[in-house]
Amino acid sequence: MADFNVSTREVGSVSIIDVKGYLDAHTAPDLENEFNKLVSGKQFKVVVNFDNLKYISSAGLGVFMAYVETMRENNGDIKFSNLKDDVYNIFDLLGFPVLYEFYKDENDALAKFKLQD
């Protein structure tokens, strides 16, 4: 169950993080590393595409909580897209929709960043 993969693409000034597989306490450090790289490279506008994510635990959710402040303090944000219902339900349970913007498609999230430029 431990298969997890994370990679980042650049679309204009926005970084899109693709997460795939199972994001739990075992694999959350990989996502944390990806965010560290973005912060080091001063890339603060982020869309996380969950299209291929099968599972997320609280350890994975904690990573987003840890970095959203840094991104917003630097005129960026973390926006979420392409969540499956069962993954979204966990975010919803914890009240994340109040804190984060969720989009059906990553292009919608990118468009929102453009509007904010």
Binding site: S57, S58, G62, M65, V68, E69, R72, L93, L94, G95
Partner: peptide, 21 residues
């Protein structure tokens, strides 16, 4: 319990969500 102020972004919980879930 999981109580946080969404407007207070400096004090968001990074843990403590497991037992709540």
């Amino acid at each position: 319990k999981l109580e946080y102020d969404p407007n207070d972004i400096n004090n968001l919980p990074e843990g403590g969500m497991g037992l709540f879930i």
